[in-house]
Simulated assay, not measured.
Amino acid sequence: MKTTENKARAAEAVPKGLSPTADVTAALAGLMNDINSKLQQQNERLTMFERKTMTYGRPALSAAADAEAPHQKAFNAYLRSGDDDALRGLELEGKALASNVAADGG
Results as ranks from 00 to 15, higher is better:
1 M>I: 10
3 T>C: 10
3 T>H: 02
4 T>L: 14
5 E>T: 06
6 N>T: 07
11 A>L: 09
11 A>Q: 08
11 A>S: 10
15 P>K: 12
16 K>A: 08
17 G>A: 05
17 G>I: 09
20 P>G: 15
22 A>D: 14
23 D>G: 07
23 D>I: 11
24 V>R: 09
24 V>N: 06
25 T>V: 12
26 A>G: 10
26 A>E: 08
27 A>F: 11
30 G>K: 15
31 L>V: 03
31 L>W: 03
31 L>K: 08
32 M>T: 15
35 I>T: 13
36 N>T: 13
37 S>D: 15
39 L>M: 15
41 Q>K: 08
41 Q>V: 14
44 E>F: 02
45 R>H: 12
46 L>M: 08
47 T>S: 11
47 T>R: 11
50 E>S: 11
50 E>V: 05
51 R>A: 11
52 K>G: 04
55 T>W: 00
56 Y>A: 05
56 Y>S: 03
57 G>W: 01
57 G>T: 00
58 R>W: 01
60 A>S: 07
60 A>M: 05
60 A>E: 05
62 S>L: 02
63 A>E: 10
64 A>H: 04
64 A>E: 04
67 A>Q: 13
67 A>E: 14
68 E>I: 13
69 A>C: 06
70 P>D: 04
72 Q>R: 03
74 A>R: 01
74 A>S: 11
74 A>H: 02
74 A>P: 00
75 F>I: 08
78 Y>T: 04
83 D>Y: 09
86 A>M: 07
87 L>G: 02
88 R>Y: 00
89 G>M: 06
91 E>K: 03
92 L>R: 03
95 K>R: 02
96 A>K: 09
96 A>D: 03
97 L>E: 11
98 A>V: 15
99 S>Q: 10
99 S>F: 07
100 N>A: 02
101 V>I: 12
103 A>Q: 06
103 A>K: 09
105 G>P: 00
105 G>N: 04
106 G>P: 00
106 G>S: 15
